[in-house]
Each structure stands twice: as structure tokens, then as C-alpha cells.
Nucleic acid binder design. Structure first.
Lengths: 216, 216, 216, 216
DNA sequence: TATGAATGAGTCTTCATTCAT
DNA sequence: CATGAATGAAGACTCATTCAT
């Protein structure tokens, strides 16, 4: 909107090339930019430009940058995480639980390719936008539940005593979301364009299978 | 410019709380802030304040924010990574290699507690400061070497054929550096202050042992 | 960010001395300051203050200091120079051409009192903002054309053989734009407030007449 | 002196390549930079770097940027101008005076190639470092004297009545110092590397001769 | 005589945010 | 609904200047 650029546009062209104006489209674009630049570093202008809209529009719709982030979290991130949670309902043994989680996490990660990257990155930063969400909304629902089930299994002798149930939950993330989030880099350094979604899933499930299969 | 004032200050000594002025101390403080805020988001003022110094000082010593990041990378990150590399010299079988890597990674992570967080986070971001370093300087030295050894072992039948050697390297990171980087969060959500360094290492080595032990 | 304060200000109206906010007015003020301080030395704050506006406004309108300078060049300097060029269309003999150029230059200088100063000064500096413009856009249009006509005349014996046609063009500037640019100083050192615009023009035309009239 | 750069120098090379440390050499370098960048825009670091010296050294020698400029003015500019003044002692008729001034100005300009550029440019700027010098020290000595002589001659009928004696002095500058100051540009736009010092002088003297020769 | 270290003030620039229209 | 205009706050960076050594 600096007239510097808009001057060119005043010459007679249709004013807006393709205004992605619905709330949902704006959220899509926001997620795009958040994934590429990181939430903190993403500017409203980045997002607005990407969406063919003025920054003022974003304020109009979301009130705040914080409001925009909040909307992304509530309407997208938590929705996706909720789907993951839904998969974990059935009671299972350790191997079954690990497999189910892994399968569900990979599925979600493939369905929402922005999720793993955003999740891993924004949870590790001290002020990360998703850290708060993890601690307050997700943790009681998923990680703690799983850790408890591992713990119970361990007390029943169904889980290797040398493993810590809580760290095992962290490991599940490190074996599913983390590789998905890191995909662009390992694709690059290994020239690994041949590893597609099913291949990743197969590898991951095989590996987790090996962890789970070995009896205590 | 105002010699009047600066002379006045000579009488009433400036607070000068704790001028951490040597280059090395400045790098320490910079790393602190980089870990907390992320490299991109960290401002020179943050770092300068932390070090009891003016932002201009940082420019004096490092010329640039980029220069400061560069110094951190060269003099700290690569030094630590180099130590990791040194551990991987001996030829070993798959189980040995995985164990050695894990042991070394955990040791380095404990010796330089800032490294895992910085590494994991700054490699995942598209413009992350360490991504470049990984791709150009570390990848040929470590990940590709390990992947090759896994690959060789696999062709000799010593590694489960369902696993991808390259993803296995990613998994090693996901099981070592990632949990260390995420420690503050899982400590918080699991109230896991009882899990200390040796405990993490023991758990991790046990887990990786289980992965490696199972014959193809 | 501090809505508290900005709402407070709505009650006690801000001074808003005289917001010279249109693009054209901003350019006027910019030229004022450029002439007084020199383009390089002029700060955006100088210009903004003069215009009753914040520096950020200038960035909003022109994107850059360079953008502002560019706008001044394109929309003001080149416009004025273009008017000069328009006067030089008719083919004339040496005396006529010199007289026409001088008359037009003085007229333009009087119509845009900022032009001579800006032009002379910013062309002489190595990194001067107008040097580039002179070399690439004005030179082929005006100085080289005139020099060619002088050269032709000389080969026809209509111009003193001891004179260099190209230096003669430089002299035309030195006799027209330069005195106008230097007016404030010679007014001061000669206490010459009695010399007004018509007087300068008369003197200059008389002088140039003397140069042109003398046959080879 | 930012350690950033000096680190390379610490490798074992002789610390200073070629320290131009005498006061006179420092002034030489300062003039070099002043001519290239303009006095205002020239930074002490520019000059210090050029001289292979620290900025602190310049403060040590000249106390101030203003002090450095003052030294340049007193010890170089005024010295050169003084030489010009010395040439103008003899009483002469109008033609003789103009010729003498022109010859002397060209000679000085060639002897001190930095003078014309510095002079013309720094006198035209409102806050130019030489404007002050012109008004207070040079004007009474040279321009006003010459103008008086022109005026006397005019009252004796020896100078065209249509010319203003004071503007005529300005013209002398515009025909001598100005072309010398502008030499780099007209050399460029006219591809005029063939015009050397004697050629400029010859042209200029011929032109001024034409002005002076014509009887009233 | 000389300088490395340090800084306060100021430059350009960007950003989130506001508001009248 | 939507935006162009505008801004305060802050960021990186530069510079002249000081001072202990």
C-alpha cells in the first residue's frame, strides 16, 4: 500500500488481482507465512501481501497480531490436534498404543503439512506461540494420558523397566513430528526426493514396531 | 559531544553493574539470548543489555548482527559439533555406531546445554541461521557419513531392510538432540524434575539399544 | 500499542501545526531541505519536521530515502530540464543558440529557484544524486546536441577556432546556472540586493552577446 | 579497528602497512576524501582508513572534525588562495586584470587539483565549510577588490555599461574554477580525454580575451 | 605518541496499530 | 466491509568522540 507500489496499479488495471478475503483464506495464508518465516518473524504485511489484502484488513478481521495467532491456534492447530486425540480413544497395549499414535501422527502430519513444522518449532522457543497451547490445552489431553498408560503398563511388567514412560512420549514426537518437520532439510542434504509420504510412514512404523516388539 | 556531561559523570561514577566485556563473554551472552528468543527474534539490544553493554559495542566487536551470528556459529557451534565428529572415527557395526553417536550427542548436549535447542530450532526454520551450516559444513561430515555406513550395513544384511538408512540418521537426532532441546517443556508438563542428565542418557541409550539389537 | 494514550490525545487535540501531507507538498519541502543541506546531508527527519510530518510518513510515501530522491529527480528536476530542452528546438546560428540557451536557462532558474543550486552542487559531487541523471538522461539530449552544433558551426568557420565546442557548453552553464546557484553568496559579499532577476538576466545576455558577436 | 577486521591482521603480518602519520600527510589524505565525498559526508573513519591510521589519531592531532576541517582551510586552502592573491597586485586595465586573474586561477587549479572542486562545492552549500572562509577572509581580499577595479574602469568608460562589475567577478569564477571543478563530468559526457590542462587554459584565455577585447 | 575499547546521539528503516472515510 | 494515511516504538547500524593504557 505504499503509494510507491500502488502508483503502478493506478494506471488503469483492475484494483485487486485476487483478493483472498474470506476469513478462512486469510488463515490459510497466515499459516503459510508462519511456517515459512516463523510466527514471531512473520509480519502482518507479509501475510497481507500474500493474501492480496491490506494489513488493516487483518486488523479488521482479527483485531491483533496476537488475535490472528490465536485464531490460527484455535481454529486450525487445535482442530488438527483434536483429530489426533480422537484416534487415541481405544485402550490398547503398549505396542498398540505406540503404533496407533505413530500412525495417527503421520496421517495428521500428511493431511496438514504445515502442522509438524509449526508445532515442533513453536513449542521449542521460550515464547513460542504453541508452547502455551501445549502446556495448557494439549498436555492434559494427550501426552500425560499416554505417559500414564505407559506407566501403568510398566508397573504391570509390560514395558522395559529401563525406559521412562514420560521420555517415551517425547520420543514418540521425536520419531514422528520431528522428521516430518525436518523433511525439507533432510530431503536436501540426502538428495532424498525418492522418500515419499508412504515411505516415511512405513519406515517410522517399522522402527516403532521394533521398539515396541521387544519384550521387557 | 557533550564533554560537560561526560566529565560530570566522572565524578559521580556510572553504575557499571557488571561489564561483561571480553569477546568470549559477549558470545556467551549472545548464545543465552539466542536460545531464549531465537536468533532472528533476538535483538542486539537484548544481548547488549544482558551483557551490561551498549548495542554499539556489539557492532564494534562483531561488525554486524550477521557477524555476531557468524562468530557464534564458527567459534561455538562448529567447535561443539567438531567434538561430536571426533567421536565417530572408529569403524563399528550398526549397533556400535548408533550407541556411539547417541552417547556422544548426549555428552555434547550436556556439556553445552544451549546447543540442542539452538540446533534443532534454527535448523527447522526456513531462514534459520544454522540451516546453512548444516547443509554446507556439517552434512558432508556427519549425517551423510553415518547414512553411508548404515547403507553399507544394510546391503550386508546387518540392518532391517524395512528401514531407510537416511531416515535412521534423522531418527538419531530426533531421539537425542530433540529431547534435550525440549527438556524445559516436558519437565514442565510432566513435572519431571526428577529426570536428571544421567537418567535421560540411560533412557536414550536403552531405547537405541533396543532399536539396534533386534536382528534384521 | 498504547491505546490509553492515543485516546487521551483525542480529547486534548494534538497541535498539528500544519500538516503538509500531499505528495506534492512533501516533494516541495524535500527540495527545500535538499537545497539548504545538500541531498546526502539532508536527513529524513529534517524534511519530515519541515513538513510537519513523521519520518515514517516519508517512508510510507516514497519507500526509501533513495525513493524520495528519485521522485524529486523524476518529477521535478527532469520536468524542469525538459522545459529547457523544449526551448532549444529551432536551428539557429551560434549567437542565436547561445542566446536562446542563456535566456531559457535564466528563465528556468528563475521559475524554479531551487534548480540551479541543486543542479550545480549535486552534479559536482562524486556521488551526487544528479550526476547520474546528467550523464545518462540529460547529456545526450542537451549538452551533446549543443556541442555538436557548435562543432558544425566551427567547421563552417562560424566559430572562433581557438575555442573548444565542448568547453563552450560548460561555459554556458558556468555563466548561467552557476551565478544563479551562487546568488546567495555574492549577494552577501557584495551587498548586492539591488541586483534582481531582470538585472542578472540582462547582464548575462549582454555578456554572452559579447562572446558570440565577435566574428572568428 | 573493529576487531572484526583487525583479526585478519593479527595473523602475523606487520601491524601497519604504511602509516601516513605526519600531520601533512594526514591533511593530504583528508583533502583526498573531502574532494571525493564532500566535507560533510566524509567520515573520520574514511580518512583514517585511507591514511592507515585510527580515527582516534585524527582526534589526537586535530582535536575535532571541525579542527581537521579548520586545519585544511588554514594550511591548504588559504595558502593556495593567497598565492592567487599575490598575482593580482599590479594595477592593470580591465583586459589585463581579467587575463591575469584567469591565468592565475587556472595555474592554481592545476597546481592544486583538489582546490576547484572543493572550493566551488563547499561554497555553494548553505553550511559549506568554505563559505565562511570566502565571506570573511577571501572576499575583502580578492572579489571585492576586483569588483572595485571593474567599477572604476566602468566609470571611466572602459567597461561595457550593460555589465555589472560584481557579476563579472562571479563570471570569472564561473569560467575558471567551475570548469576545472566539473572536469570529471564533462570529460565523461563528452568523452573528452583529449582536452588536457594546456588546452583548457588556452580555451579559457581565448574566451576571456573575447570578453575583454570588445570595447564598450 | 598512539590506540583499542566504549558509548550517546542520531540515521534509515520496519512494524503493528489506529482512524477517518 | 475495506483501506489509505499516518504514527510511535523499536531495530540495525554509523559516527564523532572520549579515555585508560
Amino acid at each position: 500500500m505504499p503509494p510507491t507500489e500502488s502508483r503502478a496499479r493506478k494506471t488503469g488495471r483492475p484494483p485487486r488481482q485476487r483478493a483472498a478475503a474470506t476469513r478462512d483464506e486469510l488463515l490459510d495464508k497466515a499459516i503459510d507465512v508462519f511456517v515459512r518465516r516463523g510466527i514471531q518473524a512473520a509480519t502482518l504485511r507479509d501475510i497481507a501481501t500474500e493474501a492480496g489484502v491490506t494489513p488493516a484488513m487483518l486488523h479488521y478481521h482479527f483485531g491483533d497480531k496476537q488475535g490472528l495467532v490465536g485464531a490460527v491456534v484455535e481454529e486450525r492447530v487445535l482442530a488438527a490436534i483434536g483429530a489426533l486425540h480422537a484416534e487415541l480413544g481405544r485402550p490398547e497395549d503398549v505396542a498398540g498404543l505406540m503404533g496407533t499414535f505413530a500412525r495417527a501422527a503421520m496421517a495428521i502430519g500428511h493431511r496438514h503439512p504445515w502442522l509438524p513444522s509449526l508445532w515442533v518449532r513453536e513449542v521449542l522457543s521460550e515464547g513460542g506461540a504453541l508452547r502455551h497451547v501445549l502446556v495448557e490445552r494439549v498436555a492434559p489431553m494427550i501426552p500425560r494420558r499416554i505417559a500414564e498408560r505407559f506407566s501403568d503398563a510398566q508397573s504391570r511388567g509390560e514395558l522395559d523397566a529401563r525406559l521412562d514412560p514420560r521420555l517415551l512420549v517425547v520420543n514418540l514426537i521425536g520419531l514422528t513430528l520431528f522428521p516430518l518437520a525436518a523433511a525439507p532439510i533432510w530431503r536436501q542434504i540426502f538428495s532424498a526426493d525418492d522418500i515419499d509420504e508412504p515411505a516415511i510412514t512405513a519406515h517410522t512404523l517399522a522402527l516403532i514396531g521394533k521398539i515396541a516388539e521387544t519384550s521387557p
